Amino acid sequence: MAADKETVMKEIKAYVRNNMVNKVIDALAQLPEPPSVAAVPLETYGHGVIDDAYGRLRMTKLEVDIADARVGEVVALIEQAAKTGEGHPGDGRILITNVEAALRIDTGERDEEALK
């Protein structure tokens, strides 16, 4: 089940501070045809601002699957809503990857239609 060559879809993964999740989701909800968002609480380990001696940082990963044409507006909105003031370490990251195919289980819709 490969995506048609003209169909281009992306997955946006945004790792944001827990206290910014509602602000980001509320901003996305204001878009015309707002995208679906999955929110996954998690702990990251690494550099930057940490919550404890183990280097743990509690964040939420937001996942948005969307047509390529909408990526710019969605990424800009997430960046703006997730940024604290002038920006601080630990505000998070946004990653964008290709989605090869999509299938909506209940209707059988595929690719961009399945993302609506």
Rank of each mutant, 00 (worst) to 15 (best):
L31Y: 04
N98I: 09
H88K: 15
Y15R: 10
V74M: 02
N18C: 15
D26S: 15
P89V: 15
A102F: 08
T60K: 02
D91L: 03
P35F: 01
A81H: 04
D52C: 11
T107L: 06
I105P: 05
D65N: 11
E43Q: 15
V37F: 00
V74Q: 04
G87M: 07
D52T: 02
S36A: 15
Q30N: 14
R56V: 09
E73H: 02
D68L: 04
A14V: 02
E43G: 10
A14P: 07
K13M: 10
D4N: 13
M59L: 08
N22S: 15
D111Y: 04
A39W: 01
H47Q: 10
P34W: 09
I66P: 03
G55A: 00
I78N: 00
R58P: 02
N19S: 11
T107W: 07
I94H: 07
K61W: 05
L57E: 08
K116E: 12
V64Q: 00
G92P: 09
L28M: 11
A29Q: 12
T84Y: 11
T60H: 04
A76H: 03
Q30D: 13
R58Q: 06
I105S: 03
V64A: 01
A82S: 15
R104Q: 10
H88P: 07
L62D: 01
N98E: 14
T97G: 12
I12C: 09
T7K: 12
P32M: 01
L77T: 07
K23W: 06
A27F: 05
V99F: 07
N18A: 14
V40Q: 12
N19M: 06
Y45A: 08
Q30C: 06
R56P: 01
V71G: 08
N19F: 14
P41T: 04
V49N: 04
A3Y: 10
K83Y: 02
R56D: 10
V21Y: 01
I94K: 00
N18Q: 11
K10R: 14
A69G: 12
G90A: 15
D26Q: 10
D51I: 12
V21W: 01
G48N: 11
T107P: 09
L77M: 14
E43D: 08
V24K: 00
V49G: 11
L57Y: 01
P32I: 05
T7V: 05
P41R: 03
I25P: 03
E43K: 13
T107R: 01
M20I: 02
M1T: 09
P32T: 06
N19L: 07
E33R: 13
V8L: 05
D4T: 03
V75D: 04
